[in-house]
Nucleic acid binder design. Structure first.
Length: 106
DNA sequence: GGATTGACATCCC
DNA sequence: CGGGATGCCAATC
């Protein structure tokens, strides 16, 4: 299945530990600048099947999107274990941890 | 093939 | 980066 979804997955897999990307960024690099929500949907559908590092995908504010606090906490711990430090209890320094792919996908 | 989904982005107050 | 409304797009159902 060669599609937007697959490119999104490829991009997510390229995010190095200790870095994060936003939904909008990923969508843009995958070819749809307005496709942030597709990324969300992909994570829901594919994360378990493809074993994606979904914990490295956050929203534009540098926060985890989860509303469920337990999942939120799990993701937060995952990020902290990769070296990302939270400023408050919920946000990270995007300018410091945001991953800027330059040539990961042709 | 149409309706639903979705952890967002962005504009506007 | 406070909070509500609106727009977006493609995979999934």
């Amino acid at each position: 299945m060669n599609s937007f979804t697959e490119r999104v997955i490829e991009i997510i897999l390229q995010i190095p530990a200790g870095k994060v990307m936003t939904y909008g960024q990923i969508a843009a690099y995958a070819g749809s600048p307005r496709g942030a929500r597709q990324v969300v949907r992909i994570l829901h559908s594919m994360s378990e099947k493809h074993q994606l590092p979904w914990h490295r995908v956050i929203n534009a504010k540098g926060e985890i999107g989860f509303q469920d606090e337990e999942s939120f906490f799990i993701q937060k711990m995952s990020l902290e274990s990769e070296g990302i430090q939270f400023k408050d209890n919920k946000s990270i320094n995007l300018q410091k941890y945001l991953f800027h792919p330059s040539n990961i996908i042709k």
